[in-house]
Amino acid sequence: SPISQSQFIPLGEILCLAISAMNSARKPVTQEALMEHLTTCFPGVPTPSQEILRHTLNTLVRERKIYPTPDGYFIVTP
């Protein structure tokens, strides 16, 4: 029987999409709110552990794709 394939999207890209959507909705993007958003909006995607989430967010900050503030994470705009 054929095996169904799913699209692979890197966690960093999913986080950027989620942060962008939450920023547009003016929702604060904390790590907890981000986990909740991922569970709700990406039900088929396994939720990352806190450690993996933190590591991926730090990587995105180093890559200058997002930036942290006391009010949460935001997408870097050119």
Results as ranks from 00 to 15, higher is better:
1 S>D: 11
2 P>F: 15
3 I>P: 06
3 I>C: 04
3 I>D: 12
3 I>V: 12
3 I>F: 03
3 I>M: 09
4 S>R: 05
4 S>N: 10
4 S>M: 12
5 Q>F: 06
5 Q>D: 11
5 Q>R: 08
5 Q>N: 02
6 S>R: 08
6 S>D: 14
6 S>K: 05
8 F>R: 08
8 F>H: 13
8 F>N: 11
9 I>K: 14
9 I>D: 10
9 I>A: 12
10 P>G: 10
10 P>S: 08
10 P>D: 05
11 L>Q: 02
11 L>H: 09
11 L>S: 02
13 E>D: 12
13 E>L: 02
14 I>E: 07
14 I>L: 10
14 I>N: 02
15 L>M: 09
15 L>I: 08
15 L>K: 01
16 C>N: 07
16 C>P: 06
16 C>H: 08
16 C>A: 04
17 L>P: 07
18 A>M: 01
19 I>C: 03
20 S>V: 04
20 S>D: 06
20 S>Q: 13
21 A>H: 04
22 M>E: 01
23 N>P: 01
24 S>P: 02
24 S>L: 08
25 A>G: 04
25 A>Y: 03
26 R>F: 07
28 P>M: 12
28 P>W: 03
29 V>L: 01
29 V>T: 04
29 V>W: 02
30 T>W: 09
30 T>H: 10
31 Q>M: 09
31 Q>K: 05
31 Q>S: 11
31 Q>C: 15
32 E>Y: 06
33 A>V: 05
34 L>R: 00
34 L>E: 00
34 L>C: 09
35 M>K: 02
35 M>D: 04
36 E>G: 11
36 E>N: 14
36 E>R: 12
37 H>A: 02
37 H>L: 01
38 L>S: 01
38 L>C: 02
38 L>V: 08
38 L>R: 00
39 T>M: 06
39 T>V: 15
39 T>K: 05
40 T>A: 04
40 T>L: 08
41 C>A: 13
41 C>M: 14
41 C>H: 07
41 C>R: 09
42 F>P: 09
43 P>K: 14
43 P>G: 06
46 P>L: 05
46 P>N: 05
46 P>D: 07
47 T>Q: 08
48 P>H: 02
48 P>N: 01
48 P>E: 01
48 P>A: 04
49 S>H: 03
49 S>I: 00
50 Q>P: 09
50 Q>R: 10
50 Q>D: 15
50 Q>Y: 15
51 E>Q: 07
52 I>N: 01
53 L>K: 00
54 R>Y: 06
55 H>A: 12
55 H>C: 10
55 H>Y: 04
56 T>M: 15
56 T>C: 09
56 T>E: 07
56 T>L: 14
57 L>M: 08
58 N>H: 13
58 N>R: 11
59 T>W: 15
60 L>C: 06
61 V>S: 12
62 R>Y: 15
62 R>E: 13
63 E>L: 08
63 E>H: 12
64 R>T: 05
64 R>L: 06
64 R>M: 05
65 K>D: 01
66 I>A: 04
67 Y>T: 09
67 Y>W: 09
67 Y>C: 14
67 Y>A: 14
68 P>K: 07
69 T>E: 07
69 T>W: 02
69 T>A: 11
69 T>G: 12
70 P>T: 14
70 P>H: 05
70 P>W: 05
71 D>S: 09
71 D>A: 12
71 D>F: 06
72 G>I: 01
72 G>S: 06
72 G>W: 01
72 G>F: 01
74 F>N: 02
75 I>N: 04
75 I>Q: 11
76 V>A: 12
77 T>L: 08
77 T>E: 14
77 T>M: 04
77 T>W: 06
